[in-house]
Design a binder for these strands. Structure first.
Lengths: 212, 212
DNA sequence: CGTCCGTTTGATCTTACTCAAAGGGCGTGG
DNA sequence: CCACGCCCTTTGAGTAAGATCAAACGGACG
C-alpha cells in the first residue's frame, strides 16, 4: 500500500492535539513528506485516516493525465473511506502530514460514525458538483476560499497548503485562470496576498456575495 | 413535506416487483405524477425511498435559477438520505413514479446498509465530479449514456426518462450543446434515435471509448 | 550567483454559451 | 378528422469565457 520509506511510525502518544474529537484509538500514527502517496487507486480499502497536521489531496486521473481533485483535507478531518474493497482514488500528502490511521476493527466498531462521515462526504461532493457544474470561474474561486476559510476556523488570514495547480484541478479550471481570477480579486481589494500561498480576506462579505 | 393530493397511498402488497432487494418493509407506497415534488430543500430529512417504477431527479438551485441535477434515480435504486436533519436538495418525479417510502425506524434498523448506500452515493458524486470537472461535452454525454445504459441492464436500447434540459443540468451543459452532441453522435453512427427519448446504441465500444 | 519551480501575465484560439428561429410530436378543441 | 397551440427539440449565427501556448517574474535553495 505504501513504501516503508514513506512513513515514520510514531507512538500514539506523540500525536498532536486534534481540533476534532477522535473517533477511536488509532492503530498507528504516520508521517508523510510533501507529495508522498498515502494510498493509490486499486489499493486495498481497509483503513481510514484523521489528519493531525498537514493537508491531503484526494484525486482521480484520466488516462491522458487530466486530474480531478475531489477533496482537500485539513487537520482534524477524516478521509479514506470509500465504497468497495479497493480505492478508486489517490491520496497524497500536500505538505508534510501526520495522520492517525485506523484499521478494520475500528471501522466495524464505529460504523455509526462512519455513516455520518459518509453522508457529509456525499454532501460535500454534491455541493462541489454545483460549484463546478454551474458556476463561473470567479464564483468557483470565491466559494473555494470561503469554504477553506471556514474550515480553518473563519479567521481573515487564509493559509493555502496547496498549489495553484491543485486548486485548478479541484475547481475544474486551468492554473492560468486560477491565477488571473486571484489577481482580479486582489485588484478589486476583496483579498490581499501576503505571498502566493497566504491570503488576507479583506472583504469577507464581498467574497461571500461572489459565491452567489 | 408533500401535499396529500400529490400521492396515492397504496397497500404494501400492491408494490411491483423490485429489481433490487428491498432493505426492509416500507412504511408506505406512494405514487407521484410527472413533475411532482417528492421533497424540497429545507424539508425534514427523516425518510428514504426506493423506486418501484418511474424515475427521479435530485437537484439544487442557485438564487438566479441555475440548476444542478446531482443525480437521477431509476427503478430499484434508493435515494433521499442526506447529511443533516433537513434536505439540502429537491427531489422530483420525472415521469409518473411509484416509491416505497421508509421511515425513521427502518433507517435506524438498517444503518449498516445505509452506510453502504451513503458510500456508493459519495462514489457516484465523485465520479460525476471528474466527468463535469475535466471532460468535454462529447465525453460527458458518452459517459452519461454508458452509465444510464448499464443501470438499465446493459441492453442496446436506451430509454431516457428525462428531458434534454435535465441532461444539460446534470452534465453542466446547455440544452443546445446536449442536442448538438447527440446529433453529432448520430451522424457518426455511434447511436441512432428512434425518437428524442429512445436511443439505440449502435456502437457500444465506440461510445465507451469516447468516455476516455 | 545561478538554477529551479511555482506563479503571473500576455496574445491568440477554441469550445461551449447565447440568442434566435424553425421543426416536430401530441393533445385539445372545433 | 383536421387544425391549432404547446412544449420539447433541433439547427444556425455570432459571442464570450476560459483554454492554450508562450514568456517573464520571483522566491527558495544549493
Amino acid at each position: 500500500m505504501y513504501a516503508a520509506a514513506q512513513i515514520q511510525q510514531q507512538s500514539f502518544e506523540q500525536a498532536e492535539h486534534l481540533p476534532q474529537a477522535q473517533v477511536s484509538r488509532p492503530h498507528l500514527v504516520a508521517t508523510y513528506k510533501a507529495g508522498r502517496e498515502i494510498y493509490a487507486e486499486g489499493d486495498l480499502n481497509d483503513k481510514f485516516y484523521q489528519i493531525s497536521a498537514g493537508a491531503v489531496r484526494v484525486y482521480r486521473l484520466l488516462s491522458d493525465g487530466r486530474r480531478q481533485v475531489v477533496s482537500f483535507h485539513l487537520p482534524g478531518e477524516m478521509f479514506g473511506f470509500e465504497a468497495g474493497s479497493n480505492h478508486s482514488f489517490f491520496a497524497e500528502a500536500i505538505t508534510e502530514t501526520t495522520l492517525a490511521v485506523f484499521g478494520r476493527r475500528q471501522m466495524q466498531e464505529r460504523s455509526r460514525d462512519l455513516l455520518a462521515l459518509a453522508l457529509t462526504g456525499m454532501a460535500r461532493a454534491q455541493q462541489h458538483l454545483l460549484v463546478i457544474g454551474r458556476q463561473c470561474a470567479v464564483e468557483r474561486i470565491a466559494a473555494f476560499l470561503v469554504d477553506l476559510c471556514e474550515r480553518q476556523g473563519g479567521g481573515r488570514l487564509l493559509r493555502l497548503p496547496m498549489s495553484r495547480q491543485d486548486i485548478a484541478d479541484y475547481l475544474g479550471l486551468t492554473i492560468e485562470t486560477v491565477s488571473r481570477v486571484v489577481t482580479q480579486l486582489k485588484e478589486r481589494s476583496v483579498i490581499a496576498l501576503r505571498d502566493a500561498r497566504t491570503i488576507d480576506i479583506v472583504k469577507p462579505d464581498a467574497l461571500r456575495l461572489l459565491c452567489n
